[in-house]
């Protein structure tokens, strides 16, 4: 028997495809590609990392949110509950599949730029950044979806969170917020942490304690959400949404 986790991940990925989430993310990557393509080299240096950050943070939450929503609308979780699959395997397979999916869409953007614009990016660091950030935001998005009543409610909450965390992050990245005070305060912003670990792959990034702090934030934060919320709250969520 093949590992059940592998079967579940494969199932999740094929559903991302069947339910058109894959095509949407390819489309989004293409649109970003086209926009970035027409920027001049200077602007590209700061916009490309920013786009990757948005993709790894906001889009991760959106994709997992829609996946959970589709699943909810078909009540398929109740069927999963009566198979020998464990809750851990179910949650883990979603996290892995969605991280693979998002890493794939980020790679598309990066590949376009390496080929056409000759951007300089450290491949190992960019993938470390994208995978750790995507994992964190996928798990956070999963937890968020446990508490969402409907699709619109979910979108509204994502927007509020993204603006709340995203705007300060963007302002800081583009140098609008300069004071030291912001530097420390923003360390607790998960989107800032994501931005930190992803921009580290681009030329001109200065490695300080902030990089290591942010990387640890993403990894430890992901573990805390996973073991603290995603796993223990899953059964209750699954039972509730299966119409019981």
């Amino acid at each position: 028997m093949k590992s059940r986790l592998a079967i579940l991940v494969k199932g999740e990925l094929s559903r991302l495809n069947k339910y058109n989430v894959f095509s949407i993310s390819i489309l989004v990557a293409l649109i970003w590609g086209i926009i970035l393509f027409f920027l001049n080299e200077d602007a590209l240096g700061s916009i490309l990392p920013f786009v990757l950050v948005l993709d790894a943070t906001m889009m991760s939450v959106m994709y997992i949110g829609s996946v959970m929503y589709f699943e909810k609308s078909e009540s398929t979780i109740s069927t999963m509950l009566v198979t020998p699959t464990t809750n851990k395997e179910l949650v883990m397979s979603k996290v892995i599949a969605n991280t693979i999916h998002n890493a794939f869409s980020a790679s598309l953007i990066i590949i376009v730029f390496i080929i056409f614009k000759d951007v300089d990016v450290k491949i190992f660091l960019v993938f470390l950044g994208i995978i750790s950030t995507t994992t964190f935001f996928t798990i956070a998005g999963l937890c968020l979806s446990y508490f969402q009543k409907d699709f619109t409610g979910m979108l509204v909450n994502i927007m509020i969170l993204m603006f709340g965390f995203g705007i300060p992050m963007a302002l800081y990245q583009f140098g609008v917020l300069k004071a030291d005070f912001w530097e420390y305060l923003l360390l607790i912003n998960p989107m800032q942490a994501g931005a930190e670990v992803i921009t580290a792959a681009f030329v001109g990034y200065e490695f300080t304690y902030k990089y290591y702090f942010s990387l640890a934030y993403m990894i430890i934060g992901a573990a805390i959400f996973y073991y603290g919320v995603a796993i223990p709250k899953f059964q209750k969520y699954a039972v509730k949404q299966s119409g019981v």
Binding site: I7, K18, E74, T76, T79, T83
Partner: peptide, 26 residues
């Protein structure tokens, strides 16, 4: 188990549904 409401992935074929669930069992 069969529930009150039939439950499947609607955008997959009958056989894709069955194959997926089948692999989860010994």
């Amino acid at each position: 188990v069969s529930f009150e409401m039939p439950i499947h992935f609607s955008k997959m074929t009958a056989m894709e549904n069955i194959d997926f669930f089948l692999k989860l069992y010994k």
